[in-house]
Design a binder for these strands. Structure first.
Length: 596
RNA sequence: GGUCCGGUAGCUCAGCUGGAUAGAGCAUCAGCCUUCUAAGCUGAGGGUCAUGCGUUCGAAUCGCAUCCGGAUCACCA
């Protein structure tokens, strides 16, 4: 059987050949997952290793013997792929032929990189901010994750709809509104020069200050803490305002629309700087009443039940969960009611095959229940619901606490990272010929690259520590390191023309081979990142690619290579690496600069 | 208490569909810029993979138990 170079990864091809060998030699049919193929450890001779231990039941030979037998067969029947082999204990170490590597490299350079569409439509919901305060570090992780996974899905052939469900109503925004009415003196973003989301956030803080003071006074006058919490007049005002809002009081609605408008303008500016955009905005003020029909439906189907007080529940004790409230006794919605409705709305709007929610892991239980309920209702979209759950971002001192003022503001952080990028760039002085505009652009690319990489390099489900000192380090496992590698390559490629198909007959050096193997692993990383919903796989891949290239770069010269042939080969290696880096960084929403 | 997630080098993290002597980055120490960008490279030290038992030719990886940390189990969102 001839292998098509573009359709299978090297490992897959080796595995396939191994299966063939077992069939031919032992007349046994084995499945791909029964054959372990690893990269050979550097201390042994070879490139890839087939582990023979698990095959003893098929070969009825000692691993060492069957290793030899299979090794002979492979080198005999596929001399184009397998150059030689050796067997150590039960490990069959295979050396891949250099021409085979070179053909891999050259075909990858001319390959068309447009993803093959798979016809599936997926919605990714992320960001989902409240409108009472500006975005913070936690939102950054959420948004970068959402944007990255959207890119990854697209690169895997999905049609992606990026959605943002804005929590624009509720008691929290009323708090900002009340405080602004009392203490704002009609201040606006324009009159104060303060970004809209920050201005509204300031009044949310003001509300809490006043609330706290009023509570203290009440406690001082003899009330209990619980009483004080409920009776503080400013809280009552906020509650009244929420009520008025729900009764569609025009004045309240006007103020609400005005202040939310400020916030949206501020958010848009932040999104723009992050380089993210959304295809669809949902607003809770428009969706919070949805879901009641679904509750009716569930009652009719006897999947939900009504308690004597009129409240509606679902019993999930058989599934090992609890009873879950779906509608209050007074007929008003709870969070879950809305989410049921929104899930339906998303499906009605786009007929999506999958719906991914980028939400923190504190809502794991909620998301599990949401999916389960929709499954029980037999909704066609239920199985497609996926929770991309991520852990909290903590500071070295522990969790961010607004009361202690340790919340890291998104805008501030991005500013700092960009300033740091500027500082480093100036110190190094490599781009002194850049115009002011070009410099601004570069600082932004580097600062944002550092920030995104720092937040995306960790497996999402893990909670992570944001160390401010570490994050502004641009060395090592960082975005700028990878970006720098790209700039180095581009510097070479600007100087030399590249021929993509020049025949290469000389033996590959280990580092040359390593580059080909690494660039060949891109597809694997891309698909793993999609399946696992984990952009950190891509970040790690990009870093390893850069690492390998830098070792090669210091060891060998490209432009002054030993021969024209080597020069040609190395230019191709540069090109392949540049593509792997810019593609993988692109998936993370990071630009790789031409120079830095 | 139930459920879920995590515990790998001083710190931050990879590795987890079982494979050879467990890897990076930071930090520490020692080297490398008259040659393609030193935001780089090379090397050294640093580990009871939380603990115990089990499955296996083989366990950081799988199973059970225990300990530690976190989240969640609201007529909150």
């Amino acid at each position: 059987m001839q292998f098509s170079i573009t359709s299978m990864s090297l490992v897959q091809q080796i595995r396939q050949a191994g299966i063939e060998a077992v069939k031919a030699l032992y007349n046994q049919d084995i499945q791909p997952d029964q054959l372990t193929v690893n990269e050979t450890k550097p201390e042994f001779d070879g490139d890839y290793t087939i582990v023979m231990f698990s095959l003893t039941k098929f070969t009825r030979q000692k691993p060492e013997e069957s290793g030899k037998t299979v090794g002979d067969w492979l080198t005999g029947h596929h001399p184009d792929i397998f150059k030689k082999y050796n067997v150590v204990k039960g490990f069959l170490n295979l050396s891949i032929s250099d021409p085979y590597y070179v053909s891999f490299l050259q075909s990858s350079l001319t390959k068309n990189t447009v993803p093959q569409v798979n016809g599936k439509k997926v919605m990714v919901e992320f960001a989902s901010p409240n409108t009472n305060k500006p975005l913070h570090l936690g939102h950054l992780r959420n948004i970068f994750l959402g944007a990255a996974i959207s890119n990854i899905l697209e690169a895997n052939g999905y049609e992606v709809i990026k959605a943002n469900l804005v929590n624009d109503r509720g008691i929290h925004i009323c708090k900002s509104m009340v405080a602004w009415l009392h203490y704002g003196n009609d201040v606006t973003p324009e009159s104060s020069g303060i970004k809209g989301d920050h201005l509204v956030g300031d009044y949310y803080v003001k509300f809490n200050d006043v609330y706290k003071k009023q509570m203290e006074e009440l406690i001082h006058s003899g009330k209990s803490k619980e009483e004080a919490e409920k009776e503080a007049s400013i809280l009552k005002e906020a509650q009244e305002m929420l009520l008025k809002w729900e009764q569609d009081d025009q004045e309240t609605r006007k103020l609400w629309a005005k202040m939310n408008g400020w916030v949206y303008k501020g958010f848009e500016e932040t999104y723009r700087r992050m380089g993210v955009s959304f295809d669809k905005m949902y607003y809770e003020s428009e969706t919070y009443l949805l879901g009641k029909e679904i509750v009716e439906e569930g009652l009719k189907k006897d999947i939900f039940f009504k308690k004597p007080d009129g409240s509606v529940w679902i019993d999930l004790t058989k599934e090992g969960l609890d009873e879950k409230l779906l509608l209050r006794a007074d007929g008003t919605s709870v969070y879950m009611t809305q989410d049921l409705g929104t899930a339906q709305l998303k499906y009605d709007d786009y007929h999506i095959d999958q719906s991914i929610y980028v939400i923190g892991d504190e809502q794991n239980y909620h998301m599990k229940v949401l999916k389960l309920i929709l499954q029980k209702l037999g909704k066609p979209y239920a199985d497609g619901i996926e929770h991309l759950s991520y852990g909290m971002v903590e500071l070295p001192g522990g969790r961010m606490k607004s009361r202690e003022g340790t919340v890291v503001d998104a805008d501030d952080l991005m500013d700092e990272m960009i300033q740091t990028a500027a500082k480093h760039t100036e110190e190094l002085g490599k781009v002194k010929d850049f115009s002011g505009e070009e410099l601004e652009k570069l600082y932004e690319v580097l600062g944002m690259g550092a920030t995104k990489f720092y937040l995306l390099r960790v497996n999402p489900k893990r909670k992570m520590v944001f160390n401010p000192e570490e994050s502004i380090d641009f060395h090592g496992f960082t975005g700028p390191f990878v970006q720098y590698t790209y700039a180095r390559i581009r510097s070479i490629l600007r100087k030399e023309e590249i021929q993509t198909n020049r025949p290469i007959s000389h033996a590959l050096l280990p580092l040359e081979k390593a580059i080909i193997i690494q660039s060949e692993k891109y597809e694997q990383a891309l698909s793993a990142a999609c399946i696992e919903m984990d952009p950190s796989i891509i970040a790690n891949y990009a870093f390893e690619t850069a690492q390998i290239f830098n070792s090669f770069y210091t060891e060998y010269s490209v432009i002054n290579a030993e021969s024209d042939e080597k020069k040609s080969l190395r230019l191709q290696l540069c090109h392949a690496t540049a593509m792997a880096i810019s593609d993988s960084m692109g998936l993370l929403g990071i630009t790789a600069p031409e120079r830095m």
